[in-house]
Nucleic acid binder design. Structure first.
Length: 573
RNA sequence: GCUCCUGUAGCUCAGUUGGAUAGAGCAUCGGAUUUCUAAUCCGGCGGUCGCAGGUUCGAGCCCUGCCAGGAGCGCCA
């Protein structure tokens, strides 16, 4: 538990239980949670009901004995037993103010340093070389980026690795397409789009031209044997692809520490398989080398095809070996879609059999689909990622230009980028990763209600307020004076702010950035309510200073929180 | 056939791991701007939490069985 208030209160509750019923019981399991309804107070403990069985007493009697066992601590304004045996607590206002002040004085608003000295590798995005990124890549990229940032904020040593699809049978076809389906001019000005076209044309020829197919195979073999010419064009495909991916990653504020594609590991495959054989984990079946996983209640998996070639399972195992040897990570997180669940279960099981103790996590997410069905290249309804971003930005730009706000022309483009892309990211991140997303332009680019721009707007309004305050009253010393929490909204805001560190931790542990998104939305909602009802600059000095401080804290949490989601926070909208 | 996921308001989704009268956004209807940004706020309407049992003081959440949808299940990744 990271919420300072909860931590302090649960300590008191534990000592109250052990005073009332004796230290011979273990009271560590007792919990304090935020009250389910404001009318019950600020926090509640529901565990008198749980304890009823072991203590063989009525829950209400237990709760009463507990609350009478110790004098009420100063931090609590009131402690009451209610209903079936709930212990409801209201915290003392001054104490709450102090707690808030302490957290606000830290440089990261109390986010715990839970990952100190711990390394975690996050494997996400992973597009295929020579194919444009499309809408199917957005979830891995955006969710992976958010998890990456959240883990870094918690102090983990994060290695973000983009495991590109840069190796495989498609390169024979592609090399033929490149040499024979493109003009000299096109080869000179190569782009991912041209590569895609070359691939498609070449692939179509393989279907009705046997000799073409043979030629493709021959080029692939040459490439795999290290033929200098083929190696050179292949490397060029990769360079051009990464260059274009980076253009998108820059717009999305995504950064990788490593770009190690499948090819990086292909020299290690032979040895990986030998290791499996040495440990008697693999056996031949129908000409292929397989690992049986019956003891894990999983189907067997193939680590070498009957033609002698290796497949993705082999590459993935070799990747773990390489990563463990080089970085010795405590954990590796893979961010891919749900269809690969079985594959990951299998290859995780093989890694365990090989003795790797690294925690392997598969963060899977639901597929994105259209209302009428899945995206498919064949139906030609695939939306390219860049087109999606452009559309979002142009919609945001239209709103800026029709608005009454006087935004300088030179700022508009950058603002539209921040808002449009923020909208797309938030639309994704605000959902539990494991739910399937039905894509509609309307939802992906929502600018009102529970949306990215709603949060950005709340933040920009605070910035504007703080600017005006500085103009009229001079700079604010964030550490001087206390925050008065006299109104219900302000008190709720304070309690909500206290939840930030714990929420970040919970988002990390559950691999759900949506936990953080949800929190930020309710915080912004509370703030908007506060803003509507509570004058700041027009209040008397004491109240004004207090409210400005509270606003500044909300701004800090909104800004930090949105940055953890990879969403920009313009100070003016 | 087997495995995994999902089913909550007209639509899209939350529900802090079993707590008190199930919450938001969108849509719809009605209100708020001489006031710090109306991309906002306030209010109304809207529910047999897929169905049926079970566990317990207490179930949207846990167990069993059905129903419906999605995904996967030996040489693609």
């Amino acid at each position: 538990m990271v919420n300072k208030c909860e931590t302090a209160i649960v300590e008191w509750i534990r000592s109250a239980f052990s005073t009332a019923f004796g230290v011979e019981y273990d009271w560590e399991w007792l919990q304090v949670v935020p009250a389910t309804d404001r009318k019950f107070g600020d926090f509640q403990c529901n565990d008198a009901m749980q304890a009823a069985r072991t203590l063989r007493m009525a829950p209400r009697a237990i709760a009463e004995r507990v609350t009478d066992a110790l004098p009420r601590p100063e931090m609590l304004e009131s402690v009451e037993v209610a209903g079936a045996g709930f212990i409801n607590m209201t915290v003392n206002k001054e104490w709450l103010t102090e707690q808030l002040q302490e957290i606000a004085a830290t440089d990261n608003f109390g986010i715990p340093n839970a990952g100190q000295g711990r390394t975690v590798i996050i494997d996400y995005s992973s597009p295929n070389v020579a194919k444009p990124m499309h809408i199917g890549h957005i979830r891995s990229t955006v969710i992976g980026c958010a998890v990456d940032r959240i883990y870094r904020a918690l102090g983990y040593n994060v290695i973000a690795d983009n495991h590109l699809g840069d190796w495989g049978t498609q390169f024979g076809i592609l090399i033929m397409g490149y040499r024979h389906c493109l003009s000299e001019d096109e080869r000179g000005n190569l782009s991912v789009e041209l590569l895609e076209r070359a691939y498609v044309e070449s692939y179509n020829k393989t279907k009705d031209d046997e000799s073409w197919l043979d030629a493709c195979r021959a080029e692939l073999v040459k490439l795999q044997r290290g033929d200098p010419e083929n190696q050179a064009v292949w490397k060029r495909f990769i360079d051009i692809s990464i260059n274009e991916f980076d253009r998108i990653y820059r717009r999305l504020d995504v950064h990788f520490d490593l770009y190690r594609g499948e090819s990086y590991y292909h020299e290690m495959l032979e040895e990986t398989v030998r290791l499996l054989q040495e440990k008697s984990l693999a056996e031949v079946s129908e000409g292929a080398l397989v690992v049986k996983l019956e003891d894990e209640a999983l189907p067997l998996c193939i680590v070498r095809k009957s033609d002698g070639g290796f497949n993705y399972t082999t590459t993935d195992i070799a990747t773990v070996r390489s990563r463990v040897e080089e970085f010795n990570p405590e954990k590796i997180i893979y961010v891919t879609d749900e269809r690969q669940q079985l594959h990951f279960k299998q290859f995780f099981a093989v890694c365990r059999k090989l003795g790797y103790e690294t925690c392997l996590e598969h963060l899977w997410f639901g597929l994105m689909r259209l209302p009428e069905g899945t995206f498919s290249t064949r139906q030609g309804n695939v939306i390219k990622l860049e087109a999606l971003l452009d559309e979002a930005v142009s919609r945001a730009l239209a709103i800026i230009e029709n608005g009454e706000r006087d935004i300088p022309v030179e700022e508009r483009r950058a603002l539209a980028e921040a808002i449009g892309i923020g909208a797309i990211k938030y639309a994704d991140l605000s959902h539990d990763p494991q739910t399937m997303i039905v894509f509609t332009w309307e939802k992906a680019l929502a600018l009102e209600g529970n949306s990215g721009p709603y949060l950005q707007y709340a933040y920009a309004r605070i910035c504007s307020l703080l600017d005006k305050h500085a103009e009229q009253f001079g700079a604010l010393d964030p550490l001087s004076g206390s925050v008065l929490l006299d109104s219900a909204v302000e008190r709720e805001l304070a309690l909500k702010l206290m939840q930030f560190p714990g929420t970040v931790l919970r988002a990390a542990e559950s691999y759900k950035p949506s936990v953080l998104a949800e929190y930020l939305f309710t915080l912004a909602q509370l703030y908007s309510r506060f803003y509507q009802s509570s004058p700041v600059l027009r209040s008397d000095e004491g109240l004004r200073k207090s409210r400005v401080k509270l606003c500044a804290m909300v701004a800090t949490v909104l800004r930090d929180g949105l940055h953890l989601l990879g969403i920009r926070t313009p100070s003016r909208i």
